[in-house]
């Protein structure tokens, strides 16, 4: 069992465990709709939600079309970057841990490699917030990547040149 529990329990941050080990159904893709659906649980998505390619391409993004509850949605499919996977989590039980307070346990039920996000009435574009969220991954990678000795040496060489 893998625990995605950060060590920051003392700082009041820890509230959940996530178990990604069960062999999950591979959904391939998941949909993100521009509305709140006040239900948790399964739904016969593939019977009712029928995305169709429009043949239109905006900024290299292939625009899809679908209808939900009478609204016309326009969407685009984004592949999750290499090294990332999407999970659908289900809350298992709410355990009480004496030292940590309330703990929520999640188990993965399904995984996906791409995500189709849908706009109501507006054509998808690179300016939408979901594609822009992926910028964070690039920034985070750059920030957390270990610095090699060579890079350090180059850096100090450059600094010396500047001064």
């Amino acid at each position: 069992m893998e625990h995605a529990t950060p060590p920051a329990a003392a700082a009041g941050g820890i509230t959940a465990t996530v178990d990604l080990s069960p062999a999950a159904t591979d959904l391939g893709g998941a949909h993100l709709l521009p509305c709140g659906i006040r239900q948790n649980g399964g739904a016969p998505v593939s019977d009712y939600f029928k995305p169709r390619s429009t043949g239109v391409e905006v900024e290299g993004v292939r625009v899809e079309e679908a209808f939900f509850r009478g609204r016309k949605l326009q969407g685009a499919t984004l592949a999750l970057p290499d090294g990332y996977r999407g999970y659908v989590l289900e809350k298992k039980s709410r355990g009480k841990d004496a030292s940590e307070g309330e703990v929520s346990n999640f188990v993965s039920r399904a995984e996906f490699q791409n995500i189709t996000y849908w706009n109501h009435d507006t054509t998808p574009s690179a300016e939408d917030s979901l594609p822009r969220c992926f910028h964070w991954l690039t920034v985070a990678n750059a920030m957390h990547k270990p610095v090699t000795a060579e890079e350090l040496a180059n850096m100090s060489a450059m600094q010396n040149q500047d001064s």
């Binding site: 509305c35 006040r38 239900q39 739904a43 209808f67 509850r69 009478g70 109501h120 009435d121």
Partner: peptide, 29 residues
């Protein structure tokens, strides 16, 4: 969840009573 098949005009008042027991869906618009 889905309301009706797309044969139905969701914007018609006739549909409203059928949405009473349906899952609530909220739209930004």
């Amino acid at each position: 969840v889905f309301g009706f098949p797309t044969l139905v005009r969701f914007s018609w008042g006739t549909c409203t009573p059928f949405f009473k027991d349906a899952v609530e869906v909220t739209w930004e618009s």
